[in-house]
Amino acid sequence: MEATGQQSSKSTSTIDASMRPTESLVRMTLLRFWRDKAAVVAMVVLIVFALLAATAPWLSENVTHHEPNLLDLSKRFQLPSKVHWLGTDDVGRDVLTRLLYGARISLGIGLLAAMVAISFGGFVGAVSGYFGGFLDDLINAVINTLLSVPTIFMLILLAAFVRPTPAMIAVIIGSIGWMGVARLVRGGVLAVKARDYILAAQVVGADNRRIILQHILPNVSSTIIVVLYIDIAGAILSESSLSFLGLGVQPPDPSWGSMLQNSLSYLFRAPYLIFPPGLAIFFTVLCLYILGDGLRDALDPRLKE
């Protein structure tokens, strides 16, 4: 069995070599992506943001020279200056340093929440689409109903019951954001399921687990990659909403949303405080959307408008 397998793969590779198009699939995808300048710029911006977040402790020690949670009541509400590039907040903390540390929490929660949503939603969607029948109907009913409760209501309901550590917040956001992924993956599975190679795999005797993991999921992976970026964006917005309401990241830890919540109380005295965290959220989410769009067009050019 193994010998024939090797032989056949060898023979297909010789056929491939003569018939292969001048560019590989991956290379063509990368090329298409590269031509989409907006998506490339968005990706660069996001990489910079991620690097800034990752190196926040080093940056605050060597560049901004401030601690994120250090109070200094003698320096309240200072406008941007050489010492405090983005000014200070109501208790004299350096805004730039908090923004950098906030990026760690906001981006980290976004990433973790999206991963929770995608792995759970992907699993549910794959099972629902593959097996169909009663299970599919049941899952659809659950998804439809969950989709009719406003997200923020469920977030508030769950956040009220647990200790809001950043990891817990990410799990909460992820656990109510899986429905969109589940629907998309289900649709993808339904489309792939009817193909002949799935039938072939079934005939050969592959079990369901193997068919889903080896034959179906790779074929819906481009959908999942695109959704990942949209979901990170959604999770960052959810985190900021929850923190803005005071139910998310708890003081003194900074997140972009909690910094905005803090600035609400001092809108008359220090309006400049609303801009750094707000712009950070806006540009991060905007870049994620643009990158997601660019990836979708690059991975599946047929979907382009």
Binding site: A233, L237, S240, S241, F244, G257, L260, I274, P277, G278, I281, F282, V285, L286, Y289
Partner: peptide, 8 residues
């Protein structure tokens, strides 16, 4: 419009 947090 989709990227801007409405509270901001």
């Amino acid at each position: 419009g989709h990227a801007v947090p409405i509270f901001w």
